[in-house]
């Protein structure tokens, strides 16, 4: 596994905390995007417009992939 610190220095708890805050901010933004996608797609789908369902599902899965990747990055800080 690649060391997240360039010089191999272990991160202090405070530094890890800052990184987690940054990652958490990105996670929350992506979550809001997913929520918007879900509500907009549901509204269109219930109204009979299913043309947006596939692109929205792909976009939501991409957001999920990014979120999972960022979560793994948090665990790599341990």
């Amino acid at each position: 596994m690649k060391d997240p610190t360039p010089r191999g220095r272990p991160l202090a708890t405070g530094e890890k905390g800052v990184i987690v805050y940054g990652i958490l901010s990105v996670l929350l933004v992506l979550l809001v995007v997913q929520l918007w996608l879900l509500t907009a797609t549901t509204n269109a789908w219930l109204g009979g417009d299913d043309s947006v369902v596939l692109p929205a599902a792909v976009a939501s899965l991409v957001c999920l992939g990014l979120n999972v990747g960022l979560l793994f990055h948090i665990f790599r800080l341990e």
């Binding site: 990652i23 958490l24 929350l28 979550l31 879900l38 797609t41 596939l54 999920l64 979560l71």
Partner: peptide, 19 residues
Amino acid sequence: AKYVVLVSGAFATGQVSML
């Protein structure tokens, strides 16, 4: 962060179920 990703998975599941 773990719970945020869990909720993200739930949203993606909803999208896929709609599909």
